[in-house]
Design a protein around this nucleic acid. Sequence first.
DNA 1: CTAGTGATTCCCT
DNA 2: GGGAATCACTAGC
Length: 213
Amino acid sequence: MIAPPDRTPLPRTFFDRPVLEVAPDLLGRILVRQTPDGPIEVRLTEVEAYDGPNDPGSHAYRGRTARNDVMFGPPGHVYVYFTYGMWHCMNLVCGPDGRASAVLLRAGEIVEGADLARKRRLSARNDKELAKGPARLATALGVDRTLDGTDACAPGETPLRMLTGAPVPSDQVRNGPRTGVAGDGGVHPWRYWVANDPTVSLYRAHTPRRRSS
DNA sequence: CTAGTGATTCCCT
DNA sequence: GGGAATCACTAGC
């Protein structure tokens, strides 16, 4: 039989490590989102690492700005950005204070509160699509810029928290080029996912867009 | 199944 | 001014 997932919160020391170490270790962990209507919980199945100072694909690559400020702060906090005019995506800040590295949460399996997630994801055709993609995951959980900077490791009640869950054995972890990253950033194989998991997004590579007339 | 494109707004240059 | 760590929808095979 399968042991139930461990509901011990992940401590800040978990995130205070090199981001390439933390990212694959997040697979199988559980993110708890406390909403006014109740909790929504996601088991993470796909993530991407962004390593600030050396990474052209990172929002922090060109220095500290109003948008990416949280990335430059202490680990264990949530960085939420707004993109493409209508979507939000969420990250967990990693490494020591000032390092500006983070893990983008790209996909997961809703394991609690699916009824609440469905109300936010009306276009999803089935429950596997509820959090299949970074903006879908943020939408399913009701995460937006008002949660930017949330400490996921704070004592007591928090709107977002990571639990130990059931980490995925390394022989079930796959990795490859990052998705959707413009410029040279896609060259690093810093996307990690759970092998053969139906909630992994597996989107095609970034396609440059010409502006319309 | 794949490939193409419009939507929509914040923020940096 | 214009790109953006995306999604949903459509057409066509």
